[in-house]
Amino acid sequence: MKKMTVILICGATLALAACGENTATRATTGAATGAVVGGAPGAVVGAALGGTGAVQVE
């Protein structure tokens, strides 16, 4: 099952890697994808650090 998941993720990555007609479109879709994929873990880690008092903003 794990091997199949890895194969599907790699296939989707290769299929969607260069979507877009020009460089601007590819950059925009790449940025949006990065924000969606990285946003949730960033929010969780940020909330964990902010909630513990490890990071203080004055």
Rank of each mutant, 00 (worst) to 15 (best):
T13I: 15
A31P: 02
A12N: 10
I7T: 13
T29I: 15
L16F: 15
P41I: 00
K3H: 10
G53I: 01
A32S: 09
I9E: 08
T23E: 14
C10W: 05
C10T: 14
A24F: 11
G38V: 02
K3V: 12
T28Y: 07
G20A: 04
V37P: 08
I9Q: 07
L8W: 05
A31Q: 08
G38L: 13
A17Q: 07
G30M: 06
A17V: 11
T33C: 10
E58H: 10
T33N: 09
A48L: 14
A31V: 12
V57R: 10
R26Q: 14
G50S: 13
T23R: 04
I9F: 12
E58C: 07
L8G: 02
T5I: 15
I9R: 05
V37E: 04
E58F: 09
G46V: 00
R26I: 14
C10F: 11
L16M: 13
P41S: 01
G42N: 01
L8T: 11
A32G: 14
R26Y: 05
V37K: 02
G38R: 01
M1N: 08
I9A: 14
G42M: 00
T52F: 03
V37G: 04
G20H: 03
I9W: 09
G30D: 10
T28A: 15
P41M: 00
G11V: 01
I7N: 08
G11S: 02
G51H: 03
A32Q: 06
Q56K: 15
K3W: 11
T33S: 12
L49Q: 09
M1V: 11
C19K: 06
A47W: 01
L49E: 07
G46L: 01
K3G: 05
A43R: 00
T29L: 15
A54W: 11
K3S: 13
L49F: 07
V36R: 04
M1E: 10
G39I: 00
G38W: 01
A18E: 12
A12G: 13
L8A: 14
G51R: 07
K2D: 13
